[in-house]
Amino acid sequence: MRVVLDPLALHGAFIREIEAISEQNLLACNQCGRCSAGCPLVEEMDLLPNQIIRPAQLGLDTVVDSTSPWLCAACLMCEARCPKGVDLPRIMDALRQIALRRGESRVVAGDVDPALLAGAPQMAIVGALRRGEK
């Protein structure tokens, strides 16, 4: 796939919104991949955690359509190991917030099977509910 990089998008609303919500500098990431190497949920994700950041650095807002931010358990493994101190769970959170502001949600709390919830850790339940906020 070929894209034409838009200089306006590099300083545009999408990047500004992510950086404002997450308080992270996207360009601090040098794409070493350590986040993806340690993430316990990559088997389920359509984009690896580092592949979430890269389009965001380029100002490509298609990354909002990824399922990965919704699968992120906020376990903080990536944040703990990032050599540049990038708090990736906050960026994941920002992408969920942006999706929600656009009226898109991948999780509806009421639709979750109670039987599944019974065996889920409390942190996952709270996290899932937070992701469902509107």
Binding site: M1, R2, V3, V4, L5, Q31, Q51, R54, P55, L58, L60
Partner: peptide, 12 residues
């Protein structure tokens, strides 16, 4: 190209 995002990239 940007092999980090697997995209061919054009810049004006």
């Amino acid at each position: 190209a940007d092999t980090l995002s697997d995209l061919a990239v054009d810049i004006l």
